[in-house]
Nucleic acid binder design. Sequence first.
RNA 1: UCCUCGAUAGCUCAGCGGUAGAGCAACCGGCUGUUAACCGGUGGGUCGCAGGUUCGAAUCCUGCUCGGGGAGCCA
Length: 430
Amino acid sequence: MDSVRIADIGGYEGQEVRIEGWLYNKRSSGKIHFLIVRDGSGFLQTVAVRGELAADQFDLCGGLTQESSIVVTGRVRADERAMGGFELTLTGIELVQLAKEYPITLKEHGVDFLLDHRHLWIRSPRQHAALLIRDEVIAAAEEWLRTNGFIKLDSPILTPAACEGTTTLFETDYFGEKAYLSQSGQLYVEAGCMAFGKVYCFGPTFRAEKSKTRRHLIEFWMIEPEMAYATQDDNMVVQEQFVSHIVKRCLENRHDELVLLGRDLSKLEAVTAPFPRVSYDEAVEMLHAGGREFEWGDDFGAPDEAVICSRFDKPVFITGYPTKVKAFYMQPEPDRPEVVKCADLLAPEGYGEIIGGSERIHDLDLLEQRMREHDLPRAGYEWYLDLRRYGSVPHSGFGLGIERTVAWISGSEHVREMIPFPRLLNRIYP
RNA sequence: UCCUCGAUAGCUCAGCGGUAGAGCAACCGGCUGUUAACCGGUGGGUCGCAGGUUCGAAUCCUGCUCGGGGAGCCA
């Protein structure tokens, strides 16, 4: 008999199949048991009827506990009364392990309790759906990049110095020398694009900031494309193609999961290139027109971003930030050096920044000057300066935060549920 | 680091000066179509920790610990 995954059950109507899974829930009515089985690919209602199943097996069903591992066989039947449209009439059941009292019930639980049991929580339907959407986002992102000529060139996680020098880094010991967990692979993909033209890195990123909001993780995943001979205008065109492809793929391949999470699909269907572009100057005017106090030259706070992106139904680029609030490597506008060639991409519906990108400085003298202004130790950056000594060209790139993107696409309110095992302020378990 | 809210049964919570409660989970029983199934019964507590006020504190006050939400910083 074929072992079948629940996701494929529709193709086996009328046949007897075998499913290897776990008991998600049980409803019992004396002479009939409804066992809801999950197998990782989906959920399926199975029906055990007294008289149609061997007596010892029927009794076994009555004693099953939540999350017990079971192998069931039965006949596939279309039935409108079952979630998913198909049901299995049991002809046999084998108990693999009788689960002890399962801590996560079908009732409500608090966040702290659920995070303490994250290793079990990921079995729950909503968490399962969110992590499937995460997988789709990653697959779609890499698919788009590879079909558009990018190669994956991983950057190191153990690094000798700060990439941007601003945020707090996790320090570790490297055989007697100080080393830091990477907070960005960007500097390394800049080297990569001079070797391969178009590259990206994808990996975990570490920020030792004491951030405690629904938008922050201590360890999060970032995908960072970098392109040689690309201007900031080219960069934004790539980003809007890239992001709209990711959204489209999720709508195509994870429709059921989006619906399960209650996502308004029309909001996602509206996400098509091109995306609106608003200059920093215009954004400041928007804030003033809305009655907010804001001084030109400051960076936007989360409430400011919310005001701006609430005016659009697509992601919106905010371009041309003041030089002094951005990273040292960003290329200034030639006729307006107080502003840099950069853009943040703000997701709609208040989800905030999902991409930060810019054109990088390619002139050696200017880059050296910026590093002095930012008090960066020259020695650790000699290799980076070499990129401006040997065939320097204009180049641009960006970083997309995976968990924030997944939170936006799935309509979830917190990034901590968008990664299998979140690292949060004061949480490194499990 | 700052602002704010919270901590009572395994879980989610009510009780807010006078004998510790409910729903769910567990256990026992009932039920042939359940959808967080339902009905009856049983067991289950150092009310976060330490002081203080009071005849009497889960309840009021102070400090501490842990957690939620937000700010800053960022993706």
